[in-house]
């Protein structure tokens, strides 16, 4: 198929995603939307952290740990965001807009369209990330006087960029998996998002060190690409602990490849089942 058509499809999908996201409110509210939830979640863990430290027997506040949690929670926005948008996508296009079958029948078909929408999700998440980082710093460091030891000039940008790029593949794979599941099911999109992102939040070492999980939990943690993604990001930004960046990247690549295989696999099965059972234009979702 013409590469041109694929590019056009991806481009349109990104544009469409942008149009849909910004439609219901003016850009200001839109920005707030992308800030409020991640920021509130950051504040929750931040307060837990501060209060927990205060109440602990030693009563000591560990700024290194705080920075660990801060960065982890901020970058987790990629997961929540891509998941949310990918999970609703199929349902909306199938039932509300009634376009899913026409997209499916277009030359580039669903996968490229979904890729475009997912990329839009990644872009939005990046916006959200920057806003949350900024406001988070403002609130914790500026307002509450919490020292967050981040040396902005010392960030290892090549490593950061590399981790983000590999991470992006992982999020896209996740997005495809969710789309696949949503094609096969109906009305589970919200629960699905909650469970998958909850699992990743718990086992991905987002706000605490995975080492304190029970051993089976650590096994799960070690299998998740998000664990290595966050480790890599943290190392690039914080340079904490002795760390073998190369091995970590290798694990990240490995688990991401696993995620991609899973994502494509689930999506392929969904495409097949959709044709077998006529799910692409199913109306009775309720």
């Amino acid at each position: 198929m013409a590469v041109n058509t694929i590019l056009r499809t991806v481009k349109q999908a990104i544009w469409l995603g942008w149009k849909i996201d910004t439609n219901w409110a003016n850009p200001l509210v839109f920005a707030i939307y992308y800030l409020v939830r991640p920021l509130a979640s950051l504040l929750i863990v931040g307060f837990i952290f501060l209060i927990g430290s205060l109440a602990s027997p030693s009563g000591v506040f560990d700024p290194q740990y705080f920075a660990y949690m801060f960065v982890g929670n901020c970058f987790f926005v990629y997961v929540t965001h891509v998941m949310m948008s990918m999970s609703i996508l199929i349902h909306e296009d199938r039932v509300h807009y009634e376009v899913l079958k026409h997209i499916y029948l277009s030359p580039a078909s669903l996968k490229w369209y979904i890729l475009g929408r997912a990329l839009n999700g990644v872009l939005n998440a990046s916006t959200s990330l920057i806003l949350t980082l900024g406001f988070g710093l403002l609130i914790f460091q500026g307002l509450l006087g919490v020292q967050i030891p981040i040396n902005w000039l010392g960030i290892d940008f090549p490593l950061l960029a590399l981790s983000l790029i590999i991470g992006m593949f992982c999020f896209l794979a996740l997005g495809f998996m969710l789309c696949g599941i949503n094609i096969m099911t109906s009305r589970v999109q919200f629960m699905l998002t909650e469970y998958v992102s909850g699992t990743l939040y718990l086992f991905g070492g987002v706000v605490f060190l995975p080492e304190i999980l029970p051993s089976w939990g650590q096994t799960i943690s070690n299998a998740l690409p998000i664990t290595y993604f966050l480790k890599s990001i943290r190392f690039a930004i914080l340079h904490q602990t002795s760390f073998d960046a190369q091995t970590n990247i290798a694990y990240l690549v490995l688990t991401t490849v696993g995620a991609i295989i899973l994502g494509i696999g689930v999506f392929k099965i969904a495409e097949y089942k959709a044709r077998r059972d006529g799910l692409i234009d199913r109306k009775e979702e309720y």
Partner: peptide, 29 residues
């Protein structure tokens, strides 16, 4: 091929008529 189903109105309500057509024209390459 292409398919038109009566009783269905595929398209994005938030986009204009022209934008909807444009969207699909691009998907059709």
């Amino acid at each position: 091929i292409s398919l038109v189903s009566g009783g269905e109105t595929p398209g994005y309500g938030i986009l204009s008529v022209r934008e909807n057509l444009w969207f699909f024209s691009q998907l059709y390459g």
